[in-house]
């Protein structure tokens, strides 16, 4: 409801005092062009050297926040070893945030969510792809772009249920016999991860 408010406010401030530097643009709104006055000043001081490249000249600017909510959500799903989804346009993703399962539709309020072990499902029309993510973070941007980062994510059908049962039994037993706080926490993580996989497979 108020997602456009900050932009509208900054616009009115910019109109009131167009030459002041107080209305600083967000990084998502910065133009990717190189500052020409800086380049000229640089050429005067160091005519034989190319002006340094800034991140904004290497990276494409994020698409600006449209005034109307787009129909699709753009998802970037990244693992340390692979890029699972890159700029894919989907209808909805459901992410396992630590505060509970979170359905993300286009036009979601900007949020950063920590992920817990659980199912992440990507809905594309009638097509639903389910991953089990171990942990990570999801960054939901105002322009209906979601960056989801996980340490390990596997398709649900690649999980072996017998291994899950074995692991669950092992760590439940370890939790009972743990002596130190650290051992206890490690066993607790084991129990939580395995029961999350178990719930994911049965649910």
């Amino acid at each position: 409801m108020f997602r456009q408010a900050s932009r509208l406010l900054s616009r009115s401030v910019a109109a009131a005092s167009s030459k002041s530097a107080t209305s600083r643009a967000f990084s998502t709104e910065l133009p990717s062009t190189i500052d020409s006055t800086f380049v000229e000043a640089w050429k005067k001081v160091a005519p034989n050297m190319d002006p340094p490249q800034t991140p904004s000249s290497f990276m494409k600017a994020r698409p600006s926040t449209a005034s109307s909510i787009p129909t699709k959500l753009t998802v970037n799903f990244v693992l340390p070893y692979a890029s699972e989804l890159s700029g894919k346009e989907v209808d909805m993703v459901i992410i396992p945030a630590t505060t509970g399962q979170m359905g993300v539709l286009p036009g979601h309020v900007p949020t950063i969510a920590e992920l817990k072990p659980g199912i992440m499902s990507v809905h594309e029309g009638t097509d639903v792809k389910k991953y089990f993510v171990s942990s990570g973070f999801a960054f939901l941007h105002a322009n209906s772009v979601a960056d989801i980062i996980a340490i390990e994510a596997v398709p649900l059908e690649n999980i072996d249920p017998s291994q899950v049962q074995k692991g669950l039994a092992e760590f439940t037993q370890k939790l009972a016999s743990a002596a130190t706080d650290l051992e206890k926490a490690e066993a607790q993580i084991g129990v939580e991860v395995h029961s999350a996989i178990n719930a994911a497979l049965s649910g």
Partner: peptide
Amino acid sequence: SNICAKHVRNCL
């Protein structure tokens, strides 16, 4: 997060 990822890998 590494421990979580390790458990998930072991269940494949």
